[in-house]
Every structure is written in structure tokens, then in C-alpha cells.
Amino acid sequence: MVGEDIDFTRLAVILCKPDAVERNLVDGVLERIAAAGVSVSARTDVVAEPWQVHVAYRDTLTDPGRAPADRPAYLEAAFVGRPVVVALAHGGPDIHARLRRLIGHTDPAQAVTGTIRGDLGSDSIAAATAERRLVRNLVHTSDDPAAARRDLATWFGAGRPAPVCDFENISVVLCKPDAVERGLADDVLERIAAAGATVTNRQQVTVQQWQINVHYWDLLVDADWFPGRDIPACLEAEYAGRQVVVALAHGAPGIHSRLRDLLGHFDPPHAAPGTIRGDLGTDSLTAASAEKRLVRNLVHTSDDPDSARRDFGTWYGARRSGLLAPLLPAQIAPADA
């Protein structure tokens, strides 16, 4: 059965409708959803097929109080053969209600300011009724967990549950406080994506003391390698209470070493041109040592699968494995595979 190991109380499917695509509003819609504290992943372009539209709107088609005889024709004219964009939204157990409030009233003309339809909508039910068509209201999100399960299979492909996460294929990216404060987190993640990784689940985090101690356990236990520096105090000064950005990078096995090569040498002056630290770094180990602090080198990625597992628990939470699957449409295998 589709998604039997997925917690659909915390997952919704976002459908950016043809009017959102044609008006170039998809980025704006997904950015507003992400800005509301929802993790958006697995963005996928789809050309809608008749069966997908019929299943997605089955309640509309079968409700005798809402469905005129020509409603199937309205739906097919609005969707079939036209491009839509779908994505997954991960959040808390109230995600479905939160998203419905965020997108606003079905009729854009009645949606309040601050909602997606209220701010970006340009149609109305009155106009649609007069023109004998569906209202163009930009976006749909799953109504509840049962609808999320159905929407996932409809738009991403029916199939077996996503496999258990394999940390051979996932690295955690940590954009450090210097990257955030210099406004470089977007640049760092874009360069990682341009290198062929799929970047998902971006989150901004205020660092807690325990997180930095767990993350840099090796510096703490080998502190005698750093004479003249109080490593616990250095870590606290550089990280505790400051903002970092974390994300997941998905790729083929070997992703950990590929990303470490992309980052470059830990001392920015020694990092080669074309690497992130070589191109964007402005600090040096020499300056850091003279000031008795840690070098500011923008970004960390997991060293190997074991560290990726630990980094995930550190920055996302040990009980948040629902973020790991489903993330990529390819993880949802065909039923006859």
C-alpha cells in the first residue's frame, strides 16, 4: 500500500495549478510556503493526465451539490495536457490546516490579504461561472492525511513505500554563522546543487550548546592539538545562540567525498579556485590562531555515512526521520517494479 511507513499527519502534497505555472508564480507560491516554516522538497514538473485530474478532484466530481453535469469537461479543459508543479511539504501534525489557511479562500476575490490566493490571485468564482469554467486559484494542498496519501500516489506515482533512508546517499550541509551573516547561504547551497546534488529540507537553526558540542566532539576530545586556544570557549563564542542554515544533499554513493572536494581546504587561503572556500572564503587559519579563535570557513558537509547519520540527528532531531522519505519522486517505485 502506498506510503504505509510515511506519517501523513506531517506531510502534504502541494499542487501548483496551470494558472500558477503560466503566470510564473510557482517559485513565489513555494517560497511563501517555505517562509511559513514548512519544509518543501521533491519539486517536480508534471503534465497532467486525465486520470490524475479525476482522482485529485474525485470529491468535486461526485458531490451532487457541487458538481454540474459539465464539471468533468471543466476539469479536463483546465488541467489535462497542461503543466503543473507538485512538491511535498513536511511539517508538524497541523500541517494540513496550516497550509489551507495560508493558501486562503477558494475564491481569490474573497481570500484575505496575506494569503497566497488573496495576494496573488487574479480570478473570481463569479467570472469563472460566467465563462463556464473552473476558477483559477493557483494552488491546492492536501486537505488531511488521507488526502495526502492519495495525492502522493496521484502526482508522484503509485507504488511501494519509500525505502529506509541510506546515508550512503545523503550528506548534511551546515552553513556556518559566518556564511549566514555574510548572506552566502544561498550561494553555498546553489553551488552544491549545481554540482549535481539534490538539496532539500533547508532550515534555519539557532544553535544550542549541546548541538555544537556534539557536532565538534572531535575538536573537544583532541583539544591538546590546539595549544593556546580554549576550544570549548571558542566553540561557544562562534556558534552558541547564533544562526546557521542546514540542508540535506542527496546524491549517488560517493557524495560525501565529492562534497568535501567541492568545499575545498579547511583553511580558505589554501583552498583551490573553484571550491566554495577558495572562491568565497575571506578568513585564514593564521588570523584565527593569532586571535585565538576558530577559522571561519563557511560550510561543513558530512564526512561519511556515519557522520551524516549523526549530523542529521544533531541538526534535525533524532526522531525526525520522516523528513528523509519520501524526498525524491524516484524513491516511489512503480507497483510492478
Rank of each mutant, 00 (worst) to 15 (best):
G322H: 15
V164S: 12
R260A: 12
C165E: 12
Q208K: 12
N137G: 01
N169R: 15
L138Q: 05
A318Y: 09
G317T: 02
A179D: 04
P227S: 03
C165F: 02
P253V: 03
I125V: 14
Y74E: 13
Q209P: 07
A185V: 02
L15Q: 05
V55S: 12
A252W: 06
G254R: 06
A127K: 13
H256D: 13
R149L: 15
G281Y: 01
R66I: 01
E31S: 15
N137M: 07
R277Y: 05
D151G: 07
A111F: 05
G159F: 10
G37R: 06
R309P: 00
D311L: 08
A247Y: 10
W217V: 15
L327Q: 13
D27L: 11
R117A: 11
G322W: 13
A69Q: 12
A223E: 15
D166L: 08
G196F: 10
R117K: 04
V244H: 03
S171A: 15
F226R: 02
F312E: 12
G37C: 12
G251L: 11
E190Y: 04
D63E: 07
D186C: 06
E291Q: 14
N137P: 01
R23K: 11
Q110K: 15
N137I: 01
V221T: 14
C175I: 07
D59Q: 13
A126N: 02
F8D: 11
V172G: 06
A97H: 13
R132D: 14
A42C: 14
R133D: 08
D222M: 10
Q331K: 00
T129C: 01
S302T: 01
T301A: 15
A158M: 14
T44E: 14
V55R: 15
V199N: 12
N213A: 14
D186A: 14
D267F: 03
P163D: 13
D336W: 14
V86T: 14
V46A: 08
I95P: 00
W51I: 12
A78D: 02
A109S: 15
I116F: 10
I95W: 06
L134C: 15
A247H: 02
D94H: 13
R136C: 09
E4V: 07
G264V: 03
W155C: 08
L120E: 07
E190V: 03
C175W: 09
G251S: 06
D311M: 07
E238M: 08
T44P: 00
G65R: 04
A288S: 10
A197S: 14
D144C: 10
P83F: 05
V40H: 08
L120Y: 09
A179W: 07
R191E: 07
L174D: 05
R191L: 09
P50L: 13
T44I: 00
V2K: 01
A249S: 13
A126M: 02
Y316K: 09
N137Y: 06
D306Y: 03
P177V: 04
L25V: 01
W315V: 09
H140C: 08
I33F: 09
N24A: 14
R82H: 10
D63V: 00
A111I: 11
D5P: 00
P268D: 05
A126R: 09
D70H: 11
P145Y: 08
D279H: 03
A12T: 07
L294C: 11
T282E: 13
V172H: 04
G118D: 02
A193D: 09
